[in-house]
Design a protein around this nucleic acid. Sequence first.
DNA 1: CCTTGACCCTCACGTGACGTGATGGCGCAT
DNA 2: ATGCGCCATCACGTCACGTGAGGGTCAAGG
Lengths: 258, 258
Amino acid sequence: MDDHLTVGRLAELAGVTVRTLHHYDEIGLVTPSARTAAGYRAYAAADVERLRQVLTYRRLGFGLREVAELISDPRADAVAHLRRQRELLVGQREQAAALIAAIDKELEARAMGIKLTPQEHLEVFGTDKVGGEWAAEARERWGDTDAYQVSQRRTASYTKEDWTRIKAEADAVRDGFAEALRTGLPASGARAMDLAERHRQHISQYFYECGYPMHRGLADMYLADPRFTGHYESAEPGLAQYVHDAFHANADRHQPAG
Amino acid sequence: MDDHLTVGRLAELAGVTVRTLHHYDEIGLVTPSARTAAGYRAYAAADVERLRQVLTYRRLGFGLREVAELISDPRADAVAHLRRQRELLVGQREQAAALIAAIDKELEARAMGIKLTPQEHLEVFGTDKVGGEWAAEARERWGDTDAYQVSQRRTASYTKEDWTRIKAEADAVRDGFAEALRTGLPASGARAMDLAERHRQHISQYFYECGYPMHRGLADMYLADPRFTGHYESAEPGLAQYVHDAFHANADRHQPAG
DNA sequence: CCTTGACCCTCACGTGACGTGATGGCGCAT
DNA sequence: ATGCGCCATCACGTCACGTGAGGGTCAAGG
């Protein structure tokens, strides 16, 4: 009774109710590895660790049935779990950040006395949807590994190296734009438009299908969102506007009537 | 039927099921402001907006009963809602970030063949608990609006100008580091340490109390998280490591025994 | 005009993850 | 031996929908 915990103790430790532990025992999700003579549940260190995994996955939006599958997956060791959990958490964090950005945008608009278009309001739904069904999406992704790389909009599971490459390419494009601006080339010139096209293809390859209409949207976003604006403005004043114009010029070139 | 939406359309738009909208209608949470002759639900723009509020609060972990109270609170206008939602989202984002940090820590430890102490394992429970009851905590906090402004740790509601200044300062520090690295100054030299200190005070002023131990944590983080790494590496190769070393050197200077 | 298929309606029971007692057995201190 | 707190097992309640069943509505095409 010294290296084993009672339900009450474990519940307090883990921040859940006793009933929850009973429930997990009932459905066989976290079963105490021993019982006292009187029938008291006795949780060992390994049980605590298992509960920790369970609660982590639960927090990520998985149902208990799914959690059971995940943690009993024989081809996944502790590190694999941690990597998976990390990814999902990054997704959650990004999602929260996206919603914060949307709210900032709206607050800003209201502060300036501008009413946003219904279109812009719907962004929240969009991100919200992705958010609410994040786990579901993740599940689908793990289902078939073929369509996975192809159709996903988000950053899936890039390795550190991938990110480094992505960042490098993004910076290369930015620096290219900065130089074009400094040397006085027009935003609608061939050099700027080529850089815009390179950027569009980069986004398409690593993030999501980005057609010309969507690329136009990105251009506007880069002017509207201070974070993105800062990314370009910090390299060269006026660069955000320049990039914006180049994106649109490039879109005009490939798909007139925009 | 032109400015009104049917259930199906709204459901798709909002990323929820038709059944959910039926349910919200049943309990009087989001009731369509009109019905067609055939009895079809007809949602007007105001209804859509209300649904948006509902889904936002729901996403933040509130029960529908609570959501109903929140959005029918007469002393809260749209901006107040947005500010509240923003705060809760910042909390969620921080919480996710905290868990990511905890996982990074464990992954790092495992990579180095170190087993963490049970103490450290329990951190996850701690943050998890805070997370699960985030909404409850938030509710308590709103009890007194005085402590509210004071005790907030994060970025609350910075203006666009604030963000621009913040970004500018961050870039100035980065460029300073880059130059120091290029000119061959050591990471433990006066120039680098002064920049580190400037960075720390910047963080403390605009974001959160950042003591030397926490600044050390940030240093490690900058090497661990590819986005932060990219921020520095893109300016100059090897800069992330350099900055990391400078932070630690600076911390050593002010608080030995680290 | 009439069919067809996609959409809509209202019951109404099912489900997942527990909450909330009810009733009774340990275990230790006074 | 007698509280008092914690433990056990039923067993029903709840919340936010899911999932059909059975039947009306509507726009498009034959």
